[in-house]
Design a binder for these strands. Structure first.
Lengths: 118, 118, 118, 118
DNA sequence: GTGGTCTAGACCACT
DNA sequence: GTGGTCTAGACCACA
């Protein structure tokens, strides 16, 4: 699956989010290996070093661990942990701002729920 | 009022959003002058050039106009125009992504909107 | 001052240690800017990106902060903080191992500390 | 006995240090055979090739010799030799650095000797 | 095979 | 001026 890049955020951040999503959705399950840096790099047509940076973010989050010479593996329990982390971040950091803006713009609940189909 | 900066977005964008908000809320009403670049710069402790860039965004949006020798003035009708613009941008660009993320995290949009009541 | 590199550790780690040392010794004092990435890079004859990685470690440690467009600045109180961190790490992680090895080799810690006097 | 790995040093080096220690402490005495590569590999859950590399370091140090068809044996006098080698390396290479860092961190002899009990 | 590091050089955003 | 990002390609250590 090819990622559709936006140019506001660095590629490595978008790649991180993409991988995080695969883990949360258990497309890559706990205990499994991520695709190798080289494979991701060639599939997504980006530089291997950029892939490494993305994966490093997952390592910093304790979501993925290196097994030397073997590859990067999803830690047991990571899916739930990651989901909880992301949820926490969203609720504490982002949602309050979003909520404030919704109010500021005077948007109604109906308008927001309308285009239900995505 | 001192802006609380975040690290992710450029200062001039945050400044723009701050000024836009003042206009939407009619803290600075139509026909009134914005504070001078110098005043904003010293109050918010940023570079005057950065302030200029923020104001330029408002000029580009037809929200503010320069009256030479006098300063920058909020155009008549700007509050409503700006609000409509921001609303449009929010609904078409941001909200779909936000909804997708909320779903991914297993949260309910309805619940969120209800819990953090208007 | 030119760093003497060893080839066991990555350059960016050695650079980090070098900068950390300058801060602990207050050669670069609190509130001051680090030399620019470009300057360090050309002085030490390494790639700017390598310098960035080193400085990023200091940012992660809350020792240094970015002021956008201006450079990287030593946070107030960083010298003491950093010293305390390094001291803590040394005592808890490294020193026990070192002592164990000294004992294993049949050497005396007391003697070593005394012989190489302060 | 299961080795507790650290992430900083290569596994084969850690394995080498572990075996060296067994020899210095004469847990494996002079003239005795090391456990087989296969046994070490399965006990420590590492790749046999990695074990081989560790043992090769001991061979390079003249601490262990291969007796074809029989296995790897600790050479007579190896315990003392090895101890002397390690001591030499420690004093010339490592201790000066450690000493310098202790001074830099302003650690006192009392602090260093305090947690005597390991 | 795996990931980690580094360089050279380019381009961008920000102040 | 400042730092951040990315690429292409090379080399290394590890298992």
């Amino acid at each position: 699956m090819k990622i559709i890049w936006n140019d506001r955020e660095p590629i490595y951040v978008q790649l991180y989010q993409y991988l995080a999503r695969l883990i949360v959705e258990q497309v890559i399950d706990e205990g499994e290996a991520l695709p190798s840096v080289r494979d991701i790099a060639s599939e997504q047509r980006v530089n291997p070093i950029t892939v490494s940076r993305a994966i490093q973010l997952l390592v910093d989050d304790n979501i993925v661990e290196k097994r030397r010479g073997l590859g990067m593996f999803v830690i047991e329990g990571a899916s739930a942990t990651l989901k909880a982390q992301l949820r926490q971040n969203f609720l504490s950091d982002e949602w309050p701002n979003i909520r404030r803006r919704i109010d500021l713009l005077g948007l109604s609940v109906e308008q927001l729920l309308k285009d239900t189909d995505l």
